[in-house]
Design a protein around this nucleic acid. Structure first.
Length: 273
DNA sequence: CAGATAACCTGCGTGC
DNA sequence: TGCACGCAGGTTATCT
């Protein structure tokens, strides 16, 4: 469910809930595992720790405390919510974080593809989930030259390149189609066949589409919500995603879709070459 | 090695 | 109303 814009919005809503500065109290583990085993150390180590910072890296959400880092990936269906009435538990709630102030944050995840793990704070750079991620899209080095150099000799489709978190971070199935449409590149184009100018434009449009989606609160197709329960709005601005059979807004050709890289992919056959 | 496919899970919409 | 099937915002392991 969540790509970078959604995770960024979860992060911002977490800050608005006042999570920074909160001191952990009891932690309740309701399930044995998400994508990975839920460790008992969550219950033992977090109480007494204060959240110093909440931040995002790629599609990961991180809570930094005095001594630890709580790492979270939302998988396809992960979500957070703040409890108002006590004991308002729902199906697929997996972990309950009680704070000393009375705030309660619950992690819910029907498909359990998410990750919730704790690491020593001085070992952040050893976290395997983060070790091979590419630079952030807003890093000064993320530009046309970067994409041009990384794509040289790559025969696989540009769409799979853009979705490869080791090459480009934060772009998933929605924003891959949207970014490539904006640049006028067909998703099936071999990555190594991108010109330098096209790489330049792709770097710009990846940032543009992610930025626009962040500003719109992310995309809600079925069930995405930020931690304050708010829905996203960028689904109303999709130019190609989910619009196969509809007219392209630029040229009136019909938008097509095809299964590619294991995911449905959308593009305009006339505007994208 | 690239590319496709399966696997991990549950829920929901569709068509019979 | 029920059931089988396909599909879903992600990632990784395993095939061909």
């Amino acid at each position: 469910m969540p790509e970078l814009p959604e995770v960024e919005n979860v992060k911002r809503s977490m800050e608005r809930l006042g999570s920074v500065g909160q001191e952990f109290a009891q932690v309740e583990l309701l399930s044995p595992k998400l994508r990975t085993q839920l460790k008992a150390s969550l219950k033992k180590q977090l109480p007494g720790q204060k959240i110093k910072k909440v931040y995002r890296r790629a599609k990961y959400l991180l809570f930094e405390t005095d001594d630890f880092v709580l790492l979270n990936h939302l998988g396809m269906t992960g979500s957070w919510r703040a409890l108002k009435a006590k004991e308002s538990r729902e199906k697929h709630d997996h972990v309950v974080f009680n704070f000393r102030s009375g705030l309660v944050l619950v992690y819910n995840d029907p498909r359990r593809f998410g990750i919730l793990e704790i690491f020593d704070r001085d070992k952040i750079d050893q976290i395997k989930w983060l070790s091979s991620l590419a630079i952030e899209p807003w890093d000064k080095d993320f530009n046309g030259d970067y994409l041009f150099n990384k794509t040289r000799g790559v025969k696989s489709a540009i769409k799979s390149f853009v979705m490869d978190q080791r090459k480009v971070v934060g772009v998933g199935n929605i924003y891959a189609s949207e970014a490539l449409y904006r640049v006028g590149i067909r998703p099936t184009r071999p990555a190594g066949r991108m010109t330098r100018v096209e790489c330049e434009r792709l770097a710009v449009e990846i940032k543009n589409v992610l930025e626009a989606a962040i500003q719109a609160g992310g995309s809600t197709i079925r069930d995405y919500r930020n931690s304050e329960g708010e829905l996203g709005g960028f689904q109303n601005h999709f130019l190609v995603y989910g619009r196969d059979g509809e007219m392209c807004g630029k040229c009136k050709a019909l938008i097509r879709s095809k299964f590619l890289v294991g995911r449905n992919t959308y593009w305009c056959p006339k505007c994208q070459r």
